[in-house]
Design a protein around this nucleic acid. Sequence first.
DNA 1: CACTATTGTGTAATCGGTTACATGTAATTT
DNA 2: AAATTACATGTAACCGATTACACAATAGTG
Lengths: 332, 332
Amino acid sequence: MATIKDVSKLAGVSVATVSRFLNKNGYVSKEAAQAITEVIEKLNYRPNNIARSLAGKKTATVALMVPDILNPFFPEIARAVEDAAHEIGYTVMLCNTDNDADKEAKYIETLIQKQIDGLIISSYTIKPEQVAKLQKHSIPVVLMDNALPGQDIISLLSDNREGGIAATKHLIAQGCKKIVHICGPMHITSSRERTLGYEDAYKKTGQFMPSLITYSDFTVKGGYDSMKGLLEAHPDLDGVFASNDLMAAGAVKALIERGITVPDDVKVIGFDGIHMEMMIPELSTIAQPIYEIGKTAMEYVVALINQEPMEKKSRLFDVELIEKQSTKKVSS
Amino acid sequence: MATIKDVSKLAGVSVATVSRFLNKNGYVSKEAAQAITEVIEKLNYRPNNIARSLAGKKTATVALMVPDILNPFFPEIARAVEDAAHEIGYTVMLCNTDNDADKEAKYIETLIQKQIDGLIISSYTIKPEQVAKLQKHSIPVVLMDNALPGQDIISLLSDNREGGIAATKHLIAQGCKKIVHICGPMHITSSRERTLGYEDAYKKTGQFMPSLITYSDFTVKGGYDSMKGLLEAHPDLDGVFASNDLMAAGAVKALIERGITVPDDVKVIGFDGIHMEMMIPELSTIAQPIYEIGKTAMEYVVALINQEPMEKKSRLFDVELIEKQSTKKVSS
DNA sequence: CACTATTGTGTAATCGGTTACATGTAATTT
DNA sequence: AAATTACATGTAACCGATTACACAATAGTG
């Protein structure tokens, strides 16, 4: 591997000049530039990023922390983040935390040692002290789809409350009279908000009862089990709002197994907008602008890394109702 | 951030001793060790990985190249690789190539500059010259679910041929008389093998015709479209073997849309064994030991990195038939 | 007891870059 | 013509570790 020294020697200039040339800062004469360009070409020289990083520059690496990349919501995030990162020459490290605080803590240690420039967290178990630790090492953090109350961290959230309202209103508009809700883990802010949205919207109809809500865990299995329970308690239900698409899918499964037709007998709507074209019927959902959020997360992280002046502000993204078959009005 | 120098000063020893202590090589007296331990604790010292890497050590980072993490097959791989990596203190960089040779080439440049220790490729478009480039930089490469003919690269494959046979035989055993096949991209080795397996097995029945095969692209949409075409050509088909689970899902969708019941009228089996619990009916499949393959890939890469003596050998993994509803025999 | 191994430690070079600073020349100002 | 300013380049310190080598003390051996 050729080094900057090799280049400087062959080009007949000093390493400083080569470095200036490479980084486009400071003065470099046309002749020197020409010579260096040629030598670089000839030696097929590539600057060593490790050395660069050590000399005080950044690593151009950010990490993405997710609970589990197997959960289809997170590949979408990963893809968005990776695309945005790649575009500006950054590289993404993938970290699965399994919602395990220990694993999380250990990972953060590793990431600090590896001198990542920034961290995008889309993990729900993240502890404030971990974030504090990162900040002590001046590693910028951006939270996606999560918020840490009372902390000075940028967090990018969808308007979950509004989404919960929109989902519920949509079911009402489609003619549902008795709408149940499968909600996600209560320690997740986004999840709570969605449920509050449902309550907001549904209470106005005067039909609300606490027993219409079941608490679940954002998994297909969880949605499936919850749906079974709800069917026992409310055989006359005709609308289901699940706090995420996976649970909605589980709910559909439970309904169909019981011989209940979706959307004819019961309409189902999810939340998130993950791609599940394989579902029959296809699922209506409240879609988050996941891609935009991911892209924004990268932009924010990079801005923080470069200490660009910015109003350090969290943001709320609009969600969008996507109507598919699962809530289609049946022409009677 | 405390450095090794700070530690050495405070502990009253030289940096060399501290380094020896940290790396557990060379002699360090009990007293020195004790003193160093205390100072490290006190200063909360963590060795700087960048500096370590520069000084000739490895980066403890591998990259994983996949076409698109949004395709549900790849999160499974990513998860396996990441788990195995994490266990041995390695970190994983995620690279989406979109099957774009340019993007791939650029990425490889970046990865070389970042001095990754090894690369696991599960991307189908990888070019031999790219691999050669990596090898020139002595970066070990392991191929997953793919092989590069005539190249000296370890590749980990499932027994796709055998899997294709097993899938077909299973459909036959379940009573299917006319079995069509939706095959994947022909430039993908694994895909071709699966199709060969189908042909092998089905030709024995004497029922085989080339028109039973449709060429598709490993997507849900592709499977859906192919199925439609096959239904036109062969209205009397009663078994479908799709070369991957996504296409199988698309096929199921097309069938159900046509009012055909799965598995009663037509049985469908896929390949890969990705998790799709949301499907109704759940999909029978030939499961690859994805997790094991991912783990093995990491083990191989690390062995290569450490230049451990090993018979540099590619491996073929056994696949497993997973029977679910989509091929259930209907009690008549 | 002299001689070799073993144990323990420190100095300084090295990895491959970046950059502050010194120095020198050419072009502008005043 | 003297004083600035802009341009161009090189020297050497530095980033934070690893490690070859030299040296010293202690233990073991014949």
